Computed example of a mutant assay.
Amino acid sequence: MWQQVIVALIVVAALVHFCTKYLPAALRKQIVYLLSRRGFDQNKLAKLFNTKSSCGDGCSSCGSCETTPAASSDASSSAPLKRVIMLRVQR
């Protein structure tokens, strides 16, 4: 009996770890939203799932309502940032 309880706890812990680390951000935000509607603390869930709390409710704390990105707010940099991955071929 105790072995089954311990195995169940380990499986639940592994599932929570998988959900908090490897799920896409959109799914994590939906999970936080659904669990917060069920009565769980939204701030703690957002911290656990590595998302920002109250995203999408219009409070502008998550930055989803902003029309201009923060990187283009500088007047000197009007072009978007380009990231180049340098590859070194070994033959």
Rank of each mutant, 00 (worst) to 15 (best):
Met1Gln: 11
Met1Ile: 09
Trp2Phe: 06
Gln3Ser: 09
Gln3Gly: 09
Gln3Asn: 12
Gln4Met: 02
Gln4Pro: 00
Val5Ala: 14
Ile6Gln: 10
Ile6Thr: 05
Ile6His: 03
Val7His: 05
Val7Cys: 05
Ala8Asn: 10
Leu9Cys: 09
Ile10Pro: 06
Ile10Ser: 15
Val11Tyr: 06
Val12Leu: 13
Ala13Gln: 01
Val16Lys: 09
His17Glu: 14
His17Gln: 10
Cys19Met: 15
Thr20Arg: 15
Lys21His: 03
Tyr22Met: 02
Tyr22Gly: 00
Pro24His: 11
Pro24Gln: 09
Pro24Ile: 10
Ala26Lys: 08
Ala26Asn: 08
Leu27Ile: 12
Arg28Lys: 10
Arg28Val: 00
Arg28Asp: 00
Arg28Gln: 01
Lys29Asp: 08
Lys29Arg: 14
Gln30His: 04
Gln30Ala: 02
Ile31Val: 05
Tyr33Glu: 01
Tyr33Ser: 02
Leu34Asn: 14
Leu34Pro: 00
Leu34Glu: 15
Leu35Ser: 01
Ser36Ile: 09
Arg37Pro: 00
Arg37Met: 08
Arg38Ala: 14
Gly39Lys: 12
Gly39Ser: 12
Phe40Pro: 11
Leu45Lys: 06
Leu45Gln: 03
Leu48Phe: 07
Leu48Ile: 09
Phe49Met: 05
Phe49Asp: 01
Phe49Glu: 00
Asn50Ile: 02
Asn50Pro: 00
Thr51Cys: 12
Thr51Glu: 13
Thr51Arg: 08
Lys52Asn: 06
Lys52Met: 05
Cys55Gly: 12
Cys55Leu: 07
Gly56Tyr: 12
Asp57Ala: 02
Cys59Ile: 06
Cys59Thr: 06
Ser60Ile: 13
Ser60Glu: 15
Cys62Trp: 03
Cys62Gly: 07
Cys62Leu: 06
Cys65Thr: 11
Cys65Met: 07
Glu66Trp: 01
Glu66Lys: 07
Thr68Phe: 10
Pro69Tyr: 07
Pro69Gln: 08
Ala70Trp: 15
Ala71His: 14
Ala71Trp: 15
Ser72Arg: 14
Ser72Phe: 14
Ser73Gly: 10
Ser73Glu: 15
Ala75Thr: 14
Ala75Gln: 13
Ser76Gly: 11
Ser76Tyr: 11
Ser77Gly: 01
Ala79Tyr: 11
Ala79Trp: 05
Pro80His: 00
Leu81Arg: 12
Lys82Asn: 12
Arg83Asp: 11
Arg83Gly: 06
Arg83Val: 15
Arg83Gln: 11
Arg83Leu: 14
Val84Gly: 00
Val84Met: 05
Val84Pro: 00
Ile85His: 08
Met86Ala: 03
Leu87Glu: 05
Arg88Gln: 04
Arg88Gly: 01
Arg88Leu: 02
Val89Phe: 07
Gln90Pro: 02
Arg91Gly: 11
Arg91Met: 04
Arg91Tyr: 08
